[in-house]
Design a protein around this nucleic acid. Structure first.
Length: 472
DNA sequence: TGAAATGTTGGGGCG
DNA sequence: ACGCCCCAACATTTC
């Protein structure tokens, strides 16, 4: 048998613990791998700028790794159904493997492609590579999807099967025929303006960063487990310290699987003595995917429809100030600048900046979500949508609308010395800790730093007033 | 995975 | 020694 099995890579850019690839290699047939870049104009949530940048480097890494197995990675651009069809015809393949995706667009697309290929006599096998528990494996007693995290996660841990992760596959027989493949550099994945790429590279690529791809993800996990995990419960809230895993972009692109992480945790903390909180963060990722699968409208619509008449404000100038980190609120500006520079923001600060946009500025959460979607290297449709609705109060398990973060108090609590603010807002580098989160109280605030675009007390009162009016 | 307003308590200063 | 007031410190309620 010299006809190959085709493995369609999507959000599973790794060799180890990759069931679609592993099973393909087990057949004893040659393996042809492909990544297909879809026409972004046809997609409801086209790749953001930071995501494209990450994808470029992740594909470079995957391509090199597959090369080591003698598997060609065929890059093609266009309609996946047509491209898979063509690849099957060019190679004589009668089997296609992929690992499942769960967002509404991919669900529809994959169902349609599977039907098409099956009709043409091609066998399609799909696998779970990116979740501990797939969305249809947990349900409440009445059979409905979970809407609250805690009971969801309790049941998920019960039904979760955790077989050991699959190893990297052995080399399959070589595939001799040469196939047309695009050049990655022709895909325009690297950002415009191009200077944006420099700080991203400094953050994530060697030598200063850990790198992108499967090996980098594994190294990052190992580092995190030794250095930060023991102190995770309190450390994770400190943006001025490196106490989070920063695995989110690796997880999003599938450079590492949650099952690999879970299994590493089982080895060092089988009784969940000190890794429970970190495991729960993986749980939030599972929960978000569960929500998006069962409530696909959460990407654009309030899950709680009583929020529909909320008097959101249309304020392009305030939105722009927030995006650029020029609101005059130090912890907010620090976070937004960290996001722009590195494609990543500490989770505590994500909550603070999001709360400020949605509550103090009363700008629709969709506008904040759109900015995060474009600028985060870990932009994930499920996590992004669910988390913004959580902050806005319009999600089912959301924080009540009146729970408004005070950025000054949050800053003083979680960045007590002001180191995080000073790192990202150089205008404030000489401000003492006493004033670092409220420079407007100084007799002479630094002239180069903007005054607050809204007085915090005013914003809070205005938001509460608006909320009161939609309650009845 | 809040913050602010309001209520309660108890120790100490003072007449 | 006693009652009164003040006000932290903590608890509870409200948004």
């Amino acid at each position: 048998m010299n006809t190959p099995v085709i493995v369609w890579f999507r959000k599973d850019l790794r060799l180890a613990d990759n069931p679609a690839l592993f099973k393909a290699c087990q057949t004893g047939q040659p393996v042809v791998a492909t990544y297909i870049l879809e026409d972004q104009a046809q997609i409801d949530f086209p790749l953001g700028g930071a995501s494209k940048w990450w994808l470029y480097h992740s594909l470079m890494s995957l391509s090199a790794a597959l090369d080591g197995l003698g598997i060609p990675l065929i890059l093609r651009r266009g309609n996946p159904r047509q491209i898979l069809d063509a690849l099957c015809q060019e190679t004589g393949a009668d089997t296609v493997h992929w690992n499942r995706m769960y967002d509404p667009y991919a669900q529809t697309r994959d169902t349609e492609i599977k039907a098409f290929l099956t009709n043409n006599g091609i066998t399609v096998h799909s696998f779970n590579a990116s979740l501990l528990v797939e969305p249809w494996h947990v349900a409440t007693k009445t059979g409905t999807p979970y809407k609250i995290f805690t009971p969801f996660w309790r049941q998920a841990r019960n039904v979760m099967s955790s077989p050991p992760p699959l190893p990297r596959p052995e080399c399959p027989p070589a595939f001799q025929q040469s196939l047309q493949s695009d050049h990655l550099t022709d895909w325009s994945l690297r950002p415009h303006p191009s200077y944006w790429a420099a700080p991203l590279a400094a953050q994530w690529l060697l030598p200063s960063g850990a790198g992108i791809g499967e090996d980098a993800a594994q190294n990052r996990l190992d580092d995190f487990i030794t250095c930060a995990l023991p102190d995770y419960d309190t450390g994770r809230d400190r943006p001025d310290q490196k106490k989070t895993s920063q695995l989110s972009p690796h997880l999003h692109w599938g450079e590492i699987s949650p099952r690999q992480i879970w299994s590493a945790l089982e080895l060092i903390d089988p009784l969940h003595d000190y890794s429970g909180q970190f495991r729960a963060e993986l749980g939030w990722r599972e929960f978000s995917t569960h929500l998006l699968y069962h409530f696909p409208q959460i990407t654009t619509e309030n899950l709680r429809r009583e929020f529909d008449p909320f008097p959101w404000r249309d304020e392009p100038a305030a939105l722009a100030a927030w995006q650029k980190g020029r609101t005059g609120i130090p912890i907010v500006d620090a976070g937004m600048r960290q996001l722009w520079d590195t494609g990543w923001m500490h989770n505590r600060v994500r909550m603070i900046t999001a709360s400020f946009l949605v509550k103090h500025l009363m700008i629709p959460w969709q506008q904040g979500a759109a900015w995060f979607w474009d600028t985060l290297v870990d932009a994930d449709l499920a996590s992004n949508s669910a988390s913004w609705q959580w902050v806005a109060g319009s999600g089912c398990d959301a924080s009540p609308y009146f729970r408004i973060f005070n950025p000054v108090l949050q800053g003083e609590k979680f960045d007590p010395l002001g180191d995080y603010v000073r790192r990202w807002v150089p205008e404030l580098k000489n401000v003492p800790a006493k004033y670092i989160h409220k420079p407007w109280n100084m007799t002479q605030p630094p002239a180069s730093y903007p005054a607050p675009i809204i007085e915090l007390g005013v914003g809070r009162t205005r938001a509460l007033e608006a909320y009161k009016n939609i309650q009845n």
